[in-house]
Amino acid sequence: MEFCPTCGNMLLYELPHMERPARFYCPTCPYVCQIESKVKIKRHLRLVKKPIDPIFSEDDRKNLNKTTGVNCPDCNHGEASFTQVQTRSADEPMTVFYTCTKCNRTWTEN
Rank of each mutant, 00 (worst) to 15 (best):
P27A: 12
V48T: 11
Q86E: 14
P51L: 06
G8T: 07
P30Y: 07
D53K: 09
E36Q: 13
L45Y: 12
Q84S: 15
I52Y: 04
C4E: 02
T99V: 04
T83K: 05
C72R: 00
E79H: 01
K102I: 00
D91N: 11
N65K: 13
V39T: 14
V70H: 00
R20C: 08
T83L: 10
K38R: 15
F3M: 05
R23L: 15
H44E: 15
G69T: 06
L12G: 04
P73F: 08
P21Q: 04
Y13V: 03
C103W: 03
K38S: 15
L64M: 13
P16S: 13
C26G: 00
T68W: 04
T101M: 07
F3T: 10
T6P: 00
A90V: 09
D74L: 09
F56K: 01
Q84C: 05
T101H: 03
M10S: 05
E14I: 09
M1D: 11
T68H: 10
N76D: 04
T101R: 12
N110P: 00
N63G: 10
T106F: 02
F24K: 05
F3P: 00
C72P: 00
T28H: 14
C7S: 04
K66F: 07
E58T: 01
S37V: 11
A80S: 14
Y98W: 01
N76S: 11
H44F: 14
L45G: 05
R61F: 11
P21W: 04
K38P: 03
E14N: 12
V70C: 01
A80R: 01
K40S: 15
E2Y: 12
A90T: 10
S57C: 02
F24A: 05
T101V: 12
T83P: 02
S89I: 04
K49L: 14
T28K: 14
D74F: 09
T28W: 09
N104T: 13
N9F: 11
N104V: 02
L47I: 09
S81C: 07
T6A: 08
L11H: 06
C100F: 02
V39P: 00
C103I: 01
Y25Q: 05
T67N: 05
N63Y: 04
D74A: 07
V85M: 09
R88F: 13
F3N: 06
N76R: 11
D53C: 02
N9I: 08
P54C: 05
K66G: 04
T68N: 14
L45N: 10
Q84A: 13
P16D: 11
I52G: 02
A90W: 05
E14R: 11
D59M: 03
I55G: 02
A90R: 09
P30S: 14
S37W: 08
K49V: 09
R61S: 04
K50V: 12
L11W: 09
N76E: 08
D53W: 02
C4L: 01
V85A: 04
L45T: 07
K102T: 01
E36A: 15
D59H: 05
E109P: 01
E58G: 00
E109N: 10
T108C: 08
I35K: 14
K49H: 07
